[in-house]
Design a protein around this nucleic acid. Structure first.
Lengths: 335, 335
DNA sequence: TTGAAAGCGCTAACAT
DNA sequence: ATGTTAGCGCTTTCAA
């Protein structure tokens, strides 16, 4: 049917081996005559030969594909990450398999298994859960993978994350030093490791500013119903704490929703409050150019994690797990 | 090393064939004894056997992977598309390989070749260019693929697109009937088929509203420098046509940039102008809730194209290419 | 009720 | 300078 090594070999009355050597560029090295090299390459081009990578992989015992598992592809944060990972991966001559865990632990486990079954050379994962059977399994099998964005403190694995606590601290400190007295923190998923770090950064900043921690200033939004929940909780907050003068958002979409809230209410939010947010989006940039923001080095995170993964794949047995903590770039007025 | 069919067979003193039958669920059907079936499945679970899909694919002659090629992963439009495609693909038990063409024809060609080399069962492509050698090749080989969003009029292939011309027409008509007299169109990539349709929708609407087409009202932005270019062209437009009272954006990021322009200039854009845009984003929704918008059925497009592709894969030789033109949902005040 | 063996398309050690 | 051959891990026909 399709053009195979064998069909080319037959057509040219050569052996499969000869054709294989030549087409994989080792013709010279193996000492084939210039004539046959030319003959084979020309013929292969002419008939439009493309190697069957599945067969090659089986024979070689490895593939040139790597897998990426993220909670959501459409979230700007992860789509930027996927963009960067895809670019790096393909620059290494690999191909990217993408899976979405939907923030669901079970789906994540299944994906890991499925992709390993596909024989991906390695995996990059933005994990959704605290600790994971499939992840321990990879560790046990010495299978190359790197955790990105979120990580699991108990496990000694490759990871690339950002310094959430310090960034949060700096942002909130900045709010206070620009005049705020009562900064609310708007967050979700407080149980997640990253979120925890962001909140403790906030807390330290409040205390270091000589002010008390107030429960009413800590607003947790339910991620699954956040659009509605933001409205309710904002109503309550502004009611209970009318003199709130600053907001620290632990993640972008909460900030966006609060902006929407203000716009819907005709509030002159740009003059009335000061804002800080972890991560930024185009919408925030337009809606509130003066918002202090931690610009996550997403592209860098993607690139670095691929670098680490590729290195791990190449070394495999004697590879020291790499732990990388990148800094956010802080975007703050007057700094 | 790894757990394979053979290692299990050896451990259990059975043959590879037996284990294969049983583990692929055809144990009953083939009439194996309940005892061996249990023995094999239990043992496989115990040692954590996962089939090598590469080997299976080679043996079966096909894979359960499909490829998606889009111009940019981080653009919200395409990331939503990828999200939807991934979900459908995985619901069919397939796995998704993702490639980004970066809007570059050559990269797109390479990707098609590369993914076909990986033996993907089919391809979904948002093509960047008018006509494509690699695409004709697929047609020639009768290789299953479907074009999405954009398509190539000359080629008879599967495609899923939206009715750009009619949506644009309705949106612009709506602007005029709500009082506008001079609606500018802000666009990029006028040479692209889709953009052409959107612009001709605009033109028809202008004429049908009994107004003249004005060159100065048609603003083309350079996609590569659009952030700067929007500023320049907007300055010029407002200067040359001070009584412009409406804007039709042929794509989301242009609308966003113009919103930014207004915000930076402190313009009360929500009362001064009326807007319409093809596609919407979170930012636009927040910035200009009253903007008339064509809500692209992205999720539907993704899902439908996977459906078509899977069908094409199953039939292959006797498959009628499917052409699907979906409607945008129009979001317009008072309608 | 189970096994032997061929074959998927390619690589690579070992001939010649 | 080129060919033979034995796998890679799985499926599946044909036997037993």
């Amino acid at each position: 049917m399709g053009i195979s090594l064998k069909s080319i070999a037959d057509d040219l009355s050569l052996s499969k081996a000869t054709v294989s050597w030549i087409l994989s560029g080792k013709g010279e090295e193996k000492g084939f005559s210039a004539a046959t090299i030319k003959q084979v390459t020309d013929y292969a081009r002419k008939v439009g030969y493309t190697p069957n990578l599945i067969a090659r992989s089986l024979s070689m015992g490895y593939t040139k594909t790597i897998g990426l598992i993220i909670p959501s592809i459409s979230d700007t944060f992860y789509s930027q990450m996927a963009q960067s990972v895809e670019a790096s991966v393909s620059s290494y001559g690999y191909v990217l398999i993408l899976g979405s865990s939907e923030g669901d632990e079970t789906k994540e486990q299944q994906l890991i298994r499925s992709l390993r079954s596909q024989q991906v050379a390695g995996l990059i994962i933005a994990p959704t859960n605290k600790s994971d059977k499939a992840i321990s399994m990879m560790l046990h099998d010495n299978f190359p993978f790197v955790l990105i964005d979120r990580y699991i403190p108990e496990l000694r694995s490759n990871y690339v994350i950002v310094d959430n606590e310090n960034s949060s601290y700096s942002l909130v400190r900045h709010l206070y030093s620009s005049g705020c007295r009562r900064v609310a923190v708007i967050t979700t998923d407080m149980h997640l490791y990253v979120m925890g770090k962001r909140i403790s950064g906030y807390r330290k900043a409040v205390l270091d500013s000589g002010l008390p921690l107030e429960d009413r200033l800590c607003v947790e939004i339910d991620r699954n119903t956040y659009i509605e929940d933001v409205k309710d909780k904002m109503n309550r907050l502004l009611d209970e704490v009318p003199d709130v003068d600053g907001f620290f958002f632990t993640t972008h979409y909460l900030a966006e929703e609060v902006m929407r809230y203000f716009i819907m209410h005709g509030t002159d939010y740009r003059h009335k409050f000061r804002f800080a947010c972890i991560h930024s989006t185009r919408a925030l940039d337009i809606l509130s150019p003066e918002m202090a923001r931690a610009m996550m080095p997403i592209t860098d995170m993607g690139r670095k994690s691929v670098d680490i993964l590729i290195e791990n794949i190449s070394s495999r047995d004697d590879f020291d797990q790499k732990e990388l903590i990148l800094d956010n770039t802080l975007l703050m007025e007057g700094i």
